[in-house]
Amino acid sequence: MEKKRPIKVLVAKPGLDGHDRGAKVVALGLRDEGMEVIYSGLRQTPEKIVQTAIQEDVDVIGLSCLSGAHNRLFPEITSRLKEKKMENVMVIAGGHIPEKDIAFLRENGISAVFGHGTPVKSIAEYIRQNIAFNL
């Protein structure tokens, strides 16, 4: 019998990009939406992010990158998750992601990309509606 429980989210900053305003605003906003949020800190390698996701058994990983390295870093994270048989973890992303890269990222396991100016409420709504377990 699964009880109603908070959704657990890892907000992570892969790569060297230090622009963490978006990541922190999303982390704080999702907390206000009733989620349990883990913030990874800066300069995380894909390996570290996946390791954290495993130990914390999160439902969602939110990735933020503004350095243009997303096409390299994000798929590495999703493929590592696959390797560990954790594909059921939802991976969403934000940052400086040009429109033209979104299709590629979606093909590579990123469920959704949220651009500049997305309200945190809509991110929370998306998570609730698309999460793998029943609340």
Binding site: D20, R21, K24, V25, L28, G29, D32, P119, V120
Partner: peptide
């Protein structure tokens, strides 16, 4: 970080 959060909430 808190100021950024506050502004987002106001928006």
């Amino acid at each position: 970080a808190m100021s950024a959060h506050e502004r987002q909430k106001r928006i």
